[in-house]
C-alpha cells in the first residue's frame, strides 16, 4: 500500500542530448535575430514581446508536469537576461552619471566636471577583489572594516528607531479614562463607575493576554512544569501556531495572485490573437 504521492520530479540532469541542445540554441539564435529585426518598430516589437511572454510563461509552467530541458533553457535565459540587464542599468543609471562623468575632464567627456579625486573610489572598491590574491588578501579588511563599522553604528540607531515605537505600542491598558477608536466589531465599551466613565478596550485585553502567553512560551529561566507557567506557555504555543498559520495563509494568497496575473496575461494575449485571426467575434 503506497499512501505517498508519486514523485513527479526527475533527478536534474544538466547534460542534454545533442539534438535538444541544437534545437534550443537555434531558438536562442532566432530569438536574438528577431529581437534585432523588430528593434525600433513599435507595433512589431509589441507583438513580439507578447509572443515571448506567453511562450516563456507556458514554458516555465512545464516544470509543474516534470523537470524538462525547455524549463532549464528558459530558466537560464531568465537569469542571464536579469544579470545582464542589472549590470547595464547600474552602469547607465548610477556609475556613469554619478561617478564616471563627474570624474572625467570636460575636454574628454561631455558634461565632465574633472573631479579627479573620485578615482580613489575605484581603488577603494578594488580592495574587495584583493581577496583573490593570497598575498594581498589582507587589504580587503580595510574596505570591509570601514563598511562594517559604519553599518554597525547605523544598525544600532536604526534598531532603536524601528523597535522603540513597537515597545511603546505594546503597553496598552485595557481600561482607560479616554475613548480609543477600535475596529468596528469590538470598539471601546463605556463603563460608568460612580460618576466616572471608563472605557474598556477588548482588543487591548486580547493583545495583552496574547503577549503574556507568547512571552511565557519563550521564558526558559523557569522550568515549564508548574501550572502558572505551563498553561500560558501551552496557550502561547497555540497562539504562535495561529499567527504562523495566518502568515502561511497570506503567503498562499500572494502566490495565487501572482499565478492569476500570469494566467490573465496568457489568456488576454490568446484572446487577442483569436480576434486577430478569426475577426471580431
Amino acid at each position: 500500500m503506497a499512501n505517498v504521492a508519486p514523485d513527479t520530479t526527475v533527478a536534474r540532469n544538466d547534460r542534454e542530448s545533442p539534438v535538444v541542445v541544437t534545437v534550443l540554441l537555434g531558438c536562442l539564435a532566432a530569438f536574438i535575430i528577431l529581437s534585432l529585426l523588430f528593434a525600433g518598430k513599435a507595433a512589431a516589437q509589441d507583438h513580439w514581446t507578447r509572443v515571448l511572454s506567453v511562450v516563456a510563461t507556458l514554458g516555465i509552467f512545464t516544470i509543474l508536469y516534470r523537470e524538462n530541458p525547455l524549463f532549464r533553457f528558459l530558466e537560464h535565459i531568465f537569469i542571464g537576461l536579469a544579470t545582464g540587464f542589472g549590470v547595464v542599468y547600474l552602469w547607465l543609471k548610477v556609475m556613469e552619471p554619478r561617478w564616471y562623468i563627474p570624474m572625467m575632464p570636460a575636454s574628454l567627456v561631455e558634461g565632465g566636471e574633472g573631479k579627479w579625486w573620485l578615482f580613489f573610489a575605484l581603488l577603494f572598491g578594488l580592495l574587495f577583489f584583493s581577496v583573490y590574491f593570497p598575498k594581498l588578501s589582507w587589504m580587503n579588511r580595510f574596505a570591509i572594516g570601514i563598511i562594517m563599522g559604519w553599518a554597525a553604528g547605523y544598525a544600532l540607531r536604526a534598531f532603536v528607531g524601528l523597535i522603540g515605537p513597537q515597545i511603546t505600542a505594546a503597553f496598552k491598558a485595557p481600561i482607560t479614562k479616554y475613548y480609543v477608536e477600535g475596529l468596528p466589531a469590538l470598539n471601546s465599551i463605556p463603563m460608568t463607575i460612580g460618576e466616572t466613565t471608563w472605557w474598556w478596550h477588548p482588543y487591548w485585553l486580547i493583545s495583552l493576554i496574547v503577549l503574556m502567553c507568547v512571552l511565557a512560551y519563550f521564558f526558559f529561566s523557569v522550568e515549564h512544569r508548574a501550572g502558572w507557567i505551563r498553561k500560558p506557555a501551552v496557550a502561547g504555543r497555540y497562539l504562535l501556531m495561529l499567527s504562523l498559520g495566518t502568515i502561511f495563509g497570506t503567503t498562499v494568497m500572494a502566490r495565487l495572485s501572482l499565478l492569476i496575473a500570469r494566467f490573465d496575461i496568457v489568456i488576454d494575449n490568446i484572446r487577442d490573437w483569436g480576434v486577430m485571426i478569426l475577426g471580431k467575434m
Binding site: Q166, A169, T246, I247, T250, T251, A254, R255, S257
Partner: peptide
Amino acid sequence: CTGVMVAEAYPF
C-alpha cells in the same frame, strides 16, 4: 505590499 508581507507589517 504583497500578501506574503502582510502579517509582518500589521504590528507597524
